[in-house]
């Protein structure tokens, strides 16, 4: 079984205290069932997770690193988008 013939899957784990699934890495597996088992065996050996998602890596559309200037740089100068211009009364506590 050569690795190139086996599709790649991205693995997302929801941790014990976590609210959302987080990307933890990837595994090779022939199908979704095997990918879930491989993810269990590779990424949850120390009690890390309560839930696993696997997604075919090929199904992920990614932004092109070459586009990062036009995609992300303009936001650097728009500090008014950060909610830091309000005074929050102490009684509100943590928001």
């Amino acid at each position: 079984m050569s690795e190139s013939a086996v599709p790649l899957w991205e693995v997302f784990i929801r941790a014990r205290q976590g609210l959302s699934h987080r990307h933890v890495g990837s595994v090779h597996a022939a199908d979704a069932t095997l990918a879930l088992q491989a993810a269990r065996d590779v990424y949850t050996r120390r009690g890390e997770g309560l839930s696993i998602w696997v997604v075919p890596s090929a199904a992920i559309a990614a932004s092109d690193p070459a586009d990062k200037e036009e995609l992300f740089e303009p936001t650097a100068s728009k500090i008014y988008r950060h909610p830091t211009f309000y005074d929050i009364p102490d009684d509100v506590g943590h928001m």
């Binding site: 079984m1 086996v6 595994v27 090779h28 088992q37 491989a38 065996d41 590779v42 050996r45």
Partner: peptide, 12 residues
């Protein structure tokens, strides 16, 4: 083992 994933599964 044939692949790393299976090696870890077998060791587990």
């Amino acid at each position: 083992a044939p692949i790393l994933e299976e090696e870890l599964a077998l060791a587990n």
